[in-house]
Design a binder for these strands. Structure first.
Length: 281
DNA sequence: CAAACTCCCTGTTAGC
DNA sequence: TGCTAACAGGGAGTTT
């Protein structure tokens, strides 16, 4: 599943190939892949648009567009579960799950491939219409340990669902939520309001470290038929029953907030000490 | 406010 | 071998 590192990888890939190119045509093979406007209007409106920037906001791909008479300014894309983007020279046969194709003046084609059909494009004037409610970027300079701790403690949620909440923090998905909790030795069910300052500080640092490491590796290989060639190796995610890299205990899978969650029962204790445990019993 | 549920989808997999 | 049913999962919306 594409999360921040995978989207960042995709954005860099697209930027390198599409910057300055002009969209000359669009084909939509699954109408609901276009969230807004309606597919017909979308195809008409993107024609003649020039790609002036390709950036990322959370898990959204943000493409800035310019045209002589401006009616739309941003093309946003979200890969959701199984989406991926490919830029090819054009003309080659379509593959089964290609949902949207953009043709460019250079002859290149952007192909949006999405087996599960959850991914979406948004063509809008104001990108805040789509990404306006997102929380801060994990790498936002304004997000320091102090503010992170205060945001964490003013909520009363379990850590895992809170990290996945895009209005709390933008870009974290199931894999990297599990990974940063393991690295910080925090239990996914731990209440956010119970975190000490040093624990919040550690969590933020480990989250940034794991995201950086994954970006450097071009993300994680989905292995799910999704075209991705990242080499980041998760330490807990998808390693149920295997040995913890820190202590050797077997990694366990539980469900937290309707999401599969992987953690080490020995390194990530809910309660910190035996004494604290007794006090609760 | 927090959490659970439902829906959207299809490839994969467990079970028969 | 071949079939069916359960399942995963991001996010929006609804209900508890």
């Amino acid at each position: 599943m594409p999360e921040l590192p995978e989207v960042e990888t995709t954005v860099r890939y697209l930027r390198e190939r599409l910057l300055g190119d002009v969209i000359v045509g669009a084909q939509v093979r699954w109408a609901r892949s276009i969230d807004r406007p309606k597919a017909r209007k979308f195809c008409r409106a993107v024609k003649g648009m020039n790609i002036t920037a390709v950036e990322r906001r959370g898990k959204f791909i943000v493409i800035s567009l310019s045209q002589v008479q401006q009616s739309f300014a941003y093309l946003l894309g979200h890969l959701r579960m199984s989406g991926s983007m490919d830029v090819i020279d054009g003309g080659s046969p379509l593959s089964k799950h290609d949902r949207v194709i953009l043709r460019f003046g250079s002859g290149k084609e952007l192909r949006f491939n999405d087996p599960r059909k959850f991914g979406r494009f948004y063509l809008v004037h104001d990108m805040l219409e789509v990404v306006g409610k997102l929380g801060p970027e994990p790498f936002d300079r304004a997000l320091g340990p102090r503010r992170f701790h205060s945001e964490l403690t003013k909520k009363r949620c379990r850590l895992k669902p809170l990290l996945l909440n895009q209005e709390f923090l933008a870009g974290v998905g199931n894999i990297y939520a599990d990974e940063c909790l393991w690295r910080s030795q925090l239990h996914p069910n731990r209440l956010s309001c119970s975190l000490r300052f040093d624990e919040a500080k550690l969590l933020l640092r480990e989250l940034r470290r794991v995201l950086k490491e994954a970006i450097r590796a071009n993300g994680t290989d989905a292995g799910d038929g999704v075209v991705e060639n990242g080499t980041y190796e998760p330490r807990v995610y998808g390693r149920t029953g295997e040995a913890c890299h820190r202590c050797g205990e077997l990694i366990r899978r539980i469900v937290v907030g309707q999401r599969g969650t992987h953690y080490c029962p020995s390194c990530q204790k809910l309660r910190r000490t035996i004494k604290a445990q007794r006090n609760h019993e």
